[in-house]
Amino acid sequence: MNHWLLIASVLALSSAFGLFLHFTRGKLTKKYSNEILFNQLKIGQDLGKKATILLFKTEYCSTCPGLKRQINELIKNDKGISFYEVDAVERIELAKKLHVKSSPTVLFFNESGLEEGRIVGAPKKDQLRNTLEKITTIKMEKTNAN
């Protein structure tokens, strides 16, 4: 086997995959379903008045602790946003129901308990802030329009 060809192929494919991850992860993506309500998930916690953030983590997720700290820091002055974390392995059926396939995955629910969107992978701090502002602003804009 041509070893240089194998090395080049592996590095090229890995680079492509790495760049794909770099440009797609950590960004807000659209919600998976219009039908799943937070209160149906049996997490045993209350909805936030403005929004609810649900972080799926695992024991082997290296970015999850930092992400948890970031989220807590961002919402510490806003009592209307609730934040909960779930171990995706301990609650594997919940992870499957919500189509969570990797950790961290952060789900954002609106004040009615419907998913507004999700972030797969660790977002940069400003992306997280922008997402929270977008999620909590959506209802305000609709109210003003009415």
Binding site: L21, T58, Y60, S62, V89, I92, K101, S103
Partner: peptide, 16 residues
Amino acid sequence: VFNFCLGCEMYLLLVR
């Protein structure tokens, strides 16, 4: 290069 832990990412998929 990308600070991406492939094994860590696969863990949840393997559990699922």
